[in-house]
Design a protein around this nucleic acid. Structure first.
Lengths: 234, 234
DNA sequence: CATTGTGAAGCGTTTCACAGCC
DNA sequence: GGCTGTGAAACGCTTCACAATG
């Protein structure tokens, strides 16, 4: 095994694809596949084979020319690079519909991100148990974060409460935020933020639908160029 | 009002930002703001002002030099460009935890994407009412899609059922899919697909967390370059 | 000899910088 | 004078094409 030469800087676009490769490779390993070529992995991930090779090359030269990549070993390397060799406990702010669904959903607990706490402002929600965690008052956030050594916070509040939730998470010492509220959070530049916004995704799809159909059905405008079927698999 | 010169081709990166601008502009309009500069909008969206101007320029020249953009009018133009001048009914496949949360969640119904149907394979779930829709057998998908003229489908099944769900949606005539299952869907290139994957987002955050802390705590490797605080607000 | 690893070309996106205009 | 609209430069990501190699 080559020595750990970690701290290579990996392009963001590649970082965003590594989890997909990982998921596919784990499935392949479970199915008993021992080796996979860049072509094979590319097919399963619906990307270009050259891209797979370039992406994997950022991890090191872990392939074998003429053969491909050893699945188990790649899984190990990607896990290590993504920091998935240990769990990352998360705390959820907001125990409404969404917060409860997230806490219950296996997506967190089963995949190395155990829900170590869930908090809310509404006393009516305190002490309800969702997904194995008991809902606590938001004022306990600092203690929860500190005692359980949490670095990732999840904002699952309505839009109105999101900025406040983020402020409290940052004050409590969190350094990464996953934001489900339809709001652009303002946080120090040292904090990593990822946003998941249902409405945004639907509106992007709407844009493509609209382009697809506008020349056909739209009665009010006629003088439009013909539409080509565009494969948008973004 | 300038004539509808629709059918301009807008870069994907811009399309993905228009919903954010829209959300901010609607808020501003509600707060009584009548005009906004590219600088002001940029600040609220946490992007560069030149980017805002370039993005908006793809819609047409709707600003006034020396003044800025009229908020109401921009809202109208962005809505039109995104195809949000009418509702897009959606059908959800999968009435489990996630499907129910989605159907109940205002994110769809309140924002122009009414849940016109929800289906499942499990007879145990049939006829339950979630978010105003009654759960129907998945075999009724073609009728639901046709009768309600639906073009957007949502995959909210477990990973195992996702490809089948997508195949059925495509067969039923859907042309856009929002996929919540942690699986790369294989669909014809004419279909638009967007994926929302919790685990992927968390793993990307994990990567940055790991980089942040590795040089500090990690006892096994020492010879690492110093870490700079990187603001990753992707 | 199949397949990786990678320079280099190609392409889309971002940012700069300033002319154009109200 | 202030702010938009936009060529052009800069940047990052993708794809090509092929030398390196087990």
């Amino acid at each position: 095994m080559p020595p750990h030469r970690t701290r290579r800087r990996i392009p963001e676009a590649t970082v965003a694809r590594l989890p997909i490769y990982l998921q596919i490779l784990v499935e392949q390993a479970e199915a008993g596949v021992e080796n996979i070529s860049s072509e094979g992995l590319a097919e399963l991930a619906a990307v270009n084979a050259a891209k797979v090779r370039k992406d994997l090359s950022y991890l090191g030269s872990y392939g074998t020319r003429g053969v491909g990549y050893e699945v188990e070993y790649l899984v190990y390397q990607i896990r290590r690079e993504l920091g998935l060799d240990h769990d990352w406990p998360v705390v959820i702010v907001g125990a409404g519909n969404l917060g409860q669904a997230l806490a219950g959903h296996g997506g967190f607990n089963d995949r190395g991100f155990p829900v170590a706490g869930i908090v809310d402002i509404d006393p009516g929600k305190f002490d309800a148990v969702v997904g194995g965690a008991r809902v606590r008052p938001i004022d306990e956030l600092p203690q929860i974060v500190a005692s359980k050594n949490i670095s990732i916070g999840v904002v699952a509040t309505p839009a109105e409460g999101a900025q406040n939730a983020a402020d409290r998470l940052v004050a409590a010492g969190i350094t990464s935020i996953l934001n489900f509220a339809p709001v652009v959070l303002s946080v120090p530049s040292t904090i990593s933020v990822r946003k998941v916004d249902l409405a945004v995704e639907l509106q992007i799809l709407s844009y493509h639908e609209q382009r697809r159909t506008s020349s056909a059905q739209n009665g009010s405008l006629r003088a439009l160029p013909a539409e080509r079927g565009r494969g948008v698999t973004a």
